[in-house]
């Protein structure tokens, strides 16, 4: 598998009500990441990008949603969600 650039691996933070809840209760920050990325790569990427220490990473594949355009049925792309739990005392300012 080709190397994924660490900087483009993390696509965006998922700033939502539910995500905020995860941050507040578990110090776990949700991100949308490249579907090909594994937990280790995600950990490295987050540690480098935000200069924090990661305790654990959990990931989930999300199926793209069905989108109808006239008679054709399409899909939005599949994507991967990662909950990055930080070690105690670490935070990410974005949220």
């Amino acid at each position: 598998m080709a190397e994924i650039d660490l900087y483009s691996l993390v696509k965006r933070p998922l700033i939502t009500e539910q995500g905020m809840h995860m941050v507040e209760t578990q110090n776990a920050y949700p991100f949308a990441v490249d579907v090909r990325a594994n937990k280790i790569q995600i950990r490295q990427a987050i540690e480098k990008l935000f200069e924090v220490e990661v305790e654990s990473v959990r990931t989930a594949h999300r199926k793209g949603k069905k989108r109808r355009r006239g008679r054709r049925v399409g899909r939005t792309p599949n994507w991967k969600k990662a909950y990055v739990k930080l070690k105690e005392g670490h935070t990410i300012e974005l949220f």
């Binding site: 998922l14 700033i15 939502t16 009500e17 995500g19």
Partner: peptide, 13 residues
């Protein structure tokens, strides 16, 4: 605010 129910957006955002 996308991702939040109306009235539940954190003030910081």
């Amino acid at each position: 605010f996308p991702g939040f129910r109306v009235g539940h957006t954190p003030r910081r955002l």
